[in-house]
Write a protein that binds this DNA or RNA. Structure first.
Lengths: 198, 198
DNA sequence: TTATTTTTGTAACGATCGGTACAAAAGTTA
DNA sequence: TAACTTTTGTACCGATCGTTACAAAAATAA
């Protein structure tokens, strides 16, 4: 009783995945529904029948990016190994994303936050949620570092996590905007040393 | 011999200033030449006769933002007072920009870098130049802090400046995207403590 | 088979896009 | 004044925007 009518001949999430890259590299206002159709291979009928509008497709894309992203980031931060290794790996992962990935460079969530959060409350909500989850995870990692003695107890876990969070986002923005690898490595050094001391 | 013909009845830089706010709040792709005309009060004839194209006007706008911005930032960082006070004032200035200014919220240079640097080499050049000048200024401030003993000599001026730079840009992005003042204050605390210790 | 439901591709919608054409307007120079 | 130069506002250009209409296609249900 569940599926009458012509079945769709594409996979929902793999279309979202393709559209993600289109929005990621061109921006919301910078790409057209024609771009989305030709990249995904869908006709306009299918695209609008499935997603409703450009805005709703963008929402599904950003939500998808958030979900896969937070999973990946948590995996890196909660992996076995020392706290120092984990934070180092986290920044190294971002470095690859910004300089060597086959995906569009930079962070789609930052782009979405800056371009659309002001106009689309649902986008702002996803970005806020993502940042809070990431910060929470960083706080847990900092607490562990304080407990084990890897990090000196001069600063609170909240202060440490807030610093690491903002430095991470600045890292992403500067990498994307200037593509300056030397600067990227200096930021990695400066950030790691500010947490683990000299 | 220099000015024959009908004189223009507007001031170039004040038009750039108005257009700046239009691009700032709507983005490059998010605003139309019609928006620019109605905000500036210019007709299309005048706008195109003066600036040539939307792209060239945007370039003039971003260059203008860079020039006034770097002057203001340097003034804050090179003002009299302790290094700690100056860095604190710098972040406090950014906080006002992101939460209380009558200008559009956030940093136009970040928006330009993320939206246009990839497609317009001249935009990337301005952003890169701005970041380098700002980082240079921060390095000088950190050197002073190291010299006077305000900052412990465990880390180099380059590491300290790189950290402050990235944390500053992350601060701006998170403020703009999430408008979370509590988070903003935690980042300010975390950043200041990471430089001056606890 | 026939009726029903959903997806598909295509054609088209009105609106708006960035940019241009051009003549009237308003000055300077001679 | 007459000749010249530049700016101004407006009308308009072809292209593209996001979206919709709709009939053919392809499945299930009766």
């Amino acid at each position: 009783m569940s599926k009458r009518g012509r079945p769709r001949d594409f996979d929902y999430t793999s279309i979202v995945d393709v559209a993600m890259k289109t929005f990621w590299s061109k921006g919301y206002n910078g790409c057209s529904t024609h771009d989305l159709c030709s990249d995904t291979g869908l006709g306009k009928g299918s695209l609008y029948n499935t997603f409703g509008s450009k805005q709703e497709l963008y929402l599904a894309v950003v939500e998808h990016y958030h979900e896969t992203g937070i999973r990946e980031q948590r995996a890196l931060l909660e992996s076995p190994g020392s706290v120092k290794e984990r934070l180092q790996n986290f920044l190294a992962w971002a470095l690859v994303e910004d300089f060597e990935s086959t995906n569009p460079k930079g962070c789609l969530l930052i782009n979405a936050g800056l371009e659309r959060a002001k106009d689309d409350p649902k986008i702002e909500e996803i970005v806020t949620r993502h940042v809070e989850l990431l910060k929470q995870t960083m706080e847990i990692v900092m607490e562990e570092g304080l407990r084990t003695g890897e990090i000196s107890k001069k600063r609170s876990a909240v202060d440490l996590a807030s610093l690491f969070l903002s430095s991470y986002y600045g890292f992403r923005v500067l990498n994307t905007s200037t593509q300056n690898r030397t600067l990227a490595e200096q930021i990695m050094n400066g950030t790691m040393e500010s947490i683990f001391g000299a």
